[in-house]
Write a protein that binds this DNA or RNA. Structure first.
Lengths: 198, 198
DNA sequence: GCGCTAAAAGCAAATAATTTGCGTTAATGG
DNA sequence: CCATTAACGCAAATTATTTGCTTTTAGCGC
């Protein structure tokens, strides 16, 4: 678990991290992921392999580390003028990104790592985006479901299907959005979940 | 993709496969998964490492192969006399198994492999179990939702939360079951999904 | 059953990845 | 500016993976 944060943020360390991340991204673009090795990354980044081994431990952790950065949302959800429109557009884009080859690879990298901190981060990113849409809806005076209801009703089914072999169709995605919005005003809020230890 | 099926099912090959699988299970019981290596497994199984390399390619594929066998349901869903009872009991047990340390490790192994055939198999196992419950409900003349609705409404949220860091509480699980059953008689069936290629 | 064919396994040498000890560089805190 | 020490680089030692070749044996036609 010797990853990322709470290491010396100063010049060299940060430079090495950036260089290694760039090397990974660059190599993943030009070759099959199965052929990417730590010595290769080290050469591309201009560092010695042992630096990578000591900092990330395994290739899997490094890949997860890079993937989670790429999964970080880089823009605000598009404002369409209505909660339904916002959620529909965001969901379709999310689904498309996640079900693309690149998206699925990144998700696999994040989930394959021992350390589940990266997976939690991805979940947090998604919740933040939905919270932004929810805030806008509230500002407009519109109903909007609980974040958890959207996670259960829209995000989870999409991710499950992508991970377990079926690509959700756009019709299904729209349907999920419709159902969660329809249920929003009729269902009571749900009980909270407990965080996982390991 | 030199895995599992359509290899010589006869004596030696099968014996080696069984021996290797047993070795993996045994080693995973007694030590940390991070310390399990192919040479170790080979020694435990009494085969040469190159046999494992040629047959499974990577440790990850072998682990996925073993995990999917352990995830295969070994019993029929308990018959409680009602659809709601059947689904509730099955779901609680499923959730408990999957969120245990062993369950999460197996799921990770299955999802981490390049080959997504194992993930598809897990999905199929789950659908079969739900189909059995649905058949029983139909025989009793009870309503029962579409398998896809149960996958979306119950299974996906549970798995998503386990994978992405939150353990679903038993209350939430019951709530998911309640909601999918409540929706069963009011919602139209959903459009189908397309299979994934890679 | 008997032998033929080829898939799968064993063996060992060659290659590649990972770990480790130790000296060096440079970020951080006083 | 100096002391401290985390992070890095280097190289040797260890361990894992690949590969060419040989041997075993399952599957199949006779």
């Amino acid at each position: 678990m010797p990853a990322k944060e709470n290491l010396r943020p100063g010049g060299r360390s940060a430079r090495v991290q950036a260089s290694v991340h760039n090397a990974v991204r660059s190599l993943l673009k030009s070759m099959d992921r199965a052929d990417v090795t730590i010595p290769l990354i080290a050469a591309e980044a201009g560092v010695t392999p042992s630096t990578i081994y000591r900092r990330w431990g395994e290739l899997q952790e490094l890949l997860a580390d890079v993937a989670v950065e790429r999964l970080r949302p880089d823009m605000l959800p598009i404002d369409t003028g209505s909660a339904r429109g916002d959620l529909e557009v965001w969901t379709e884009q999310y689904c498309e990104e996640m079900s693309s080859g690149v998206g699925r690879d990144m998700m696999r990298d994040v989930l394959a790592a021992q350390d589940n901190a990266n997976a939690c981060k991805c979940d947090a990113f998604t919740r933040e985006q939905i919270a932004l849409i929810a805030d806008r809806a509230r500002d407009r005076g519109e109903y909007f479901p609980d974040i958890d209801a959207v996670m259960d009703g829209v995000v989870a089914p999409i991710i499950y299907r992508i991970l377990f072999g079926e690509m959700p169709s756009i019709e299904r995605v729209r349907d999920l959005v419709t159902n969660v919005l329809a249920a929003a005003s009729t269902r009571p809020p749900r009980p909270a979940s407990a965080p996982i230890s390991g």
